[in-house]
Design a protein around this nucleic acid. Sequence first.
DNA 1: CTGGATCCGCAGAGATACTG
DNA 2: CAGTATCTCTGCGGATCCAG
Lengths: 125, 125
Amino acid sequence: MSQSHIDVTALTGEACPVSGVLDHVSGKWSIGILVAAAQGPVRFTELERSIRGISRRMLTLQLRKLERDGLLTRTVYPTAPPKVEYALTDMARELHESLLTLTGWATRHRSAIAAAQAEYDGRLG
Amino acid sequence: MSQSHIDVTALTGEACPVSGVLDHVSGKWSIGILVAAAQGPVRFTELERSIRGISRRMLTLQLRKLERDGLLTRTVYPTAPPKVEYALTDMARELHESLLTLTGWATRHRSAIAAAQAEYDGRLG
DNA sequence: CTGGATCCGCAGAGATACTG
DNA sequence: CAGTATCTCTGCGGATCCAG
C-alpha cells in the first residue's frame, strides 16, 4: 500500500510470466546463440564452432528450445550431406536489439564489475 | 573468412566476458530482485514477500551475488530488531533501463511465444 | 528481523558412442 | 553433417534448524 510495498507480481503479471519468458533468453548459451544467428542463416556446425565451449548436446537442446519459443527458424535442406540452417524470426530480431543494449551495458561496466568483485572479495579473505 | 563465418568470441571479446557478466543478471531471480529494488531502498522481508516463490536461502545468495557485482548496496541499521536495506547502485540503475526494454519485449511477445510453443508442441504430441 | 549452516534430491550439463 | 541416446556427475535450489 505504502510506497515501500513492492509487489513484483504486479509488475510482471500474475505468476511471473515475464520471468518465464526471460528464463528462455537467460540461459547460459541463449544470448550467444541468438547473437551468432543474428548475422544471417547459420549452419549447425558453424554455431558449434562460433560458440566456444558449448557441447553438441547443449547446442541441440538450446536450439530446440529457441525454435519452440518461436525465436529461431530451422530449415532443413534434404541434400547429402544434410544441411540445416538456423535464422532469427522477426520477433527474435526485435529481441536482438534489446540484447545489444544489454551487452553494451555489460561491456561498458565490465571493469567496474570486476573491480567491485575484487573489492568485495578483498574485504573478506 | 566468408561472410557466413561467425565468431561469437569476436563479438564478445576473447573468452565471452559479456556472457560472464550477463550470467549474473540472467539468474532465475536476479531480474526480479533488481526490478523490485529499483523502486527504492527495500528491506529483506519486503523482497521476500515481493518475489513470490523465492526461498530465504536463495534470496540471501542472490543478494550477496548482486552486492558482490556492485549492483546492490547493503545498508545495515544496528537497531533491534536489525534492519537491512538494499538499493540499486548507479550502475544497476542504468542496467534497469535495459531490463525494462527486455521486460517490455517479453510482455509484448508473451502471447506470441505461448502460441509458438503450443504450435510446436502440437506438431509433435 | 536477517541471516548462516547443513542435508539432500533432482534437473542441468559434460563425455562418449552411435545413427540417418 | 546434424543430430540422438545413455550415463554420469555436479551444483542449484528447497527444507530445516540455528544464531546475532
